[in-house]
């Protein structure tokens, strides 16, 4: 068998949902402290497939369906983690955070600090993000910035199944609360529609991907496009089109918002001189502003043009298809952002 054929045989293309479940199962096999709880994580395997197979292998004690009581089970995750367990808890839609935010923001994220470091809260909070399928503004938000804003939690948002598995393993082994935000449009659930490029080859053996280490998923020299999750796919599609116009775009996948790899972004912008930040979360006070600020406050002179952002407008997410699609970031908006920069000059001339 040629090496090419061998690689094809060994290739295991997994969805993000499968990759997450595989990582959880591998950690549960080696660490009895790890357990899963949340709504519909048991026999159903998670509404978005990320706990599929776990109930059959580990049973109802370690893969616990909860009542629809986010306040109680999110608080319970804090108590169990503080008592030596490593709970993985599912908040089905990130939009539901409003009913249990006290347990997340005031306990989970603060107890390590308030205890002077004597209490550890190693919770993995899994939650779905993103829209594009007409589910309106209580089931389609991203809220990356909401969770990245308050200190004390790590924030993960994978764009593909390889990263999804490695980041999940890192999350489970971390001593801190981690919110693991998976995008519904990347999850590989056919009924939601899915981005095929998120389904990639995933090694069966366990591995980790460090937090705070962005990936340059496409190299380029003319412009840097930064994003997470679905934003990365929009950026890659825009980069393809820009390439046909002779523009070489570099695409940076942050992978984690906290910790944030400002170094990789800065190095890329220092090389290209132009920056576009893509975010499906609301524009104001969010990730796009943070990334741009981290360049500007470090060295304005690396910029050859004013940075651009392609983010969700500051509106609740509408239901009807034309309105929602109008508001969502897409590759065309990224290309428009690049066009705007072409006509402008950098700080020296501003």
């Amino acid at each position: 068998m040629s090496s090419v054929a061998a690689a094809a045989v060994n290739e295991r293309r997994l969805t993000i949902a499968r990759a997450m479940a595989e990582s959880i199962a591998q950690e549960m096999r080696i660490d009895p402290r790890v357990f899963v709880m949340g709504e519909d994580v048991g026999p159903l395997g998670g509404v978005f497939g990320n706990t599929r197979g776990l109930f059959d292998e580990f049973g109802a004690e370690r893969v616990r369906d909860t009542p629809i009581s986010e306040t109680a089970f999110m608080g319970a995750a804090v108590g169990a983690a503080s008592d030596g367990m490593r709970p993985i808890v599912e908040l089905m839609f990130v939009d539901f955070f409003g009913v249990c935010f006290d347990a997340i923001y005031n306990s989970m994220a603060k107890n390590t600090y308030f205890s002077g470091g004597t209490v550890k809260v190693p919770v993995v909070l899994m939650t779905s993000t993103g829209g594009g399928y007409s589910d309106a503004g209580q089931h389609s938000q991203c809220l990356y910035g909401t969770f990245a804003h308050l200190p004390g939690m790590k924030v993960v948002a994978p764009s593909n199944a390889y990263d999804a598995k490695g980041l999940m393993t890192t999350a489970i082994r971390d001593e801190n609360p981690v919110i693991y935000m998976y995008h519904k449009g990347l999850q590989g659930m056919g009924w939601l529609g899915t981005e095929p490029a998120a389904t990639v080859n995933v090694p069966e053996e366990s591995y980790t991907i460090p937090f705070g280490k962005a990936a340059i998923v496409r190299e380029g020299k003319d412009v840097t496009i930064v994003g997470v999750a679905m934003g990365v796919h929009n950026a890659l599609k825009a980069a393809e089109k820009l390439a046909t116009q002779g523009v070489s775009a570099e695409v940076v996948d942050l992978r984690t918002l906290v910790p944030l790899d400002r170094e990789t972004v800065f190095a890329s912008v220092a090389k290209t001189g132009k920056l576009i930040v893509v975010d499906e979360d609301y524009q104001s006070y969010g990730m796009t502003g943070e990334i741009i600020a981290s360049i500007v406050e470090r060295d304005l002179s690396v910029l050859k043009a004013a940075p651009q952002r392609v983010a969700y407008p500051d509106i609740p997410i509408p239901f009807t298809r034309p309105m929602e699609q109008f508001a969502l970031p897409n590759p065309e908006k990224i290309i428009e952002a690049y066009e705007k920069m072409k006509g402008r000059r950098g700080w020296r001339w501003m």
Partner: peptide, 10 residues
Amino acid sequence: MGPAVGAALS
């Protein structure tokens, strides 16, 4: 209250 329930579960 939630944390107490979680500690008991632990």
